[in-house]
Simulated assay, not measured.
Amino acid sequence: MAVCAAFGLPEHTGPLTPIAGSAEETWRLDTAAGSFLVKRPAAQPRRLPDLAIAISVENRAAAAGVPVPRQLRPVTGRGPLADLGDGHGLVRAYEWLEGGPPADGDDVSAWLGTVLAILHRPEPDGDGGGGGDGGGGEAEPSQDWYGVQPLAAWLELVERGETGGHDWAPSLRKRLTLIGELTDRVVAAFAACGDPVLTHRDLLPRNVLMAGTTGPVLIDWDTAGPDCATLEAAHALFVFCEGPDGLPRRDRLSKGLAAYHENGGILRPSPFPLARRLGLRLALLAERARVALGIQQAPEAARAAAAARVARDADALPASSDRLLSLSPLFTSGH
């Protein structure tokens, strides 16, 4: 098998087994030397420069003590990427870790605050990142990462929905003014960002693996890149501390904030610390509309499910956005 040869592994003991639910092509590989995860990062070769930055961020984080999966190195070449010669792009390989995301009873808030602080420490040269394999680069966050799109794009979705007779179109049209106002808030928070860093950028529970006795491990670094430290920290702490009522558990939030501050993290003043959380909700609403319209390809069942959610999410937007705005003062250094 080509992947075994590329990474200097003994012959496989079974086929490459696809892993369901991954956004990228990902497999489990079993060999006489153990099991490994093999993945092909998406959108090659266009994303290769971004991937080089992501690899650099991951290596820097690992060197600083962030728990990450052990990478395998190809027999030839520089860095962790291997060309299998199949014409489908480069692959990476990691040691396989058993486990799953944190359960509701797993309080990882202090761990998260520590990891965030490590990720947000400036490099000695002050560029916010770099070093490691494959290059680096200056931290230049983009508002695209915050789900920002012009109001004209929303209007096009509404008009296509109306033309197609979709039940959700009136609800979405009703919220266009609010969507424009909320987008302006997200853009303003992003523009006020004064702490650009190179970081993980996708700190969600699904990207934390509770790996037995080793504790939490941060996985899926392929989208690592430039972001705003304060906005990433507020978003991650909110998501990991969120309770079943949609509100942050105050005890967990306090522990997470304390760990962040104790390890050097600084939450800068922001007009809207939870801007990324709101931006992602707007982005998800737009994505569901695109799926429902068939603009974004998906199975028929997924299209039906998306259509059912658009009106519900649009109708809930005033209350959900007000909640995020009211909770933002919790995510300050003075809390």
Rank of each mutant, 00 (worst) to 15 (best):
A6C: 12
E11R: 13
H12S: 15
G14M: 01
T17D: 12
I19Q: 14
S22H: 08
A23K: 08
E25Q: 14
W27H: 11
A32M: 03
A33R: 15
L37I: 12
P45L: 12
D50H: 10
E58L: 12
V66Y: 10
V68S: 09
L72N: 04
G77W: 00
L84D: 05
D86Y: 05
Y94E: 12
D106A: 14
A110S: 14
A117R: 07
R121V: 02
D125Y: 09
G126Y: 09
G130N: 04
S142K: 08
G147I: 01
A152Y: 00
A153T: 15
A153P: 01
E156P: 00
R160V: 01
G161M: 02
G164M: 03
H166D: 08
H166A: 13
D167N: 02
W168F: 07
S171A: 15
L172I: 04
L176W: 02
T177E: 15
T183R: 12
D184M: 01
A189C: 08
F190W: 15
A191R: 13
A191L: 12
C193I: 02
D195S: 14
D195E: 13
L198T: 00
G212C: 04
G215M: 03
L231Q: 13
F240W: 06
P244G: 07
D245V: 07
P248H: 10
S254M: 05
S254G: 09
L257F: 10
N263K: 15
G265P: 13
P273Q: 08
L285G: 03
R288C: 08
A289K: 02
V291F: 03
L293I: 02
L293N: 02
E300R: 14
D313C: 02
D315F: 00
L327W: 07
S328D: 15
P329C: 10
L330A: 13
S333P: 00
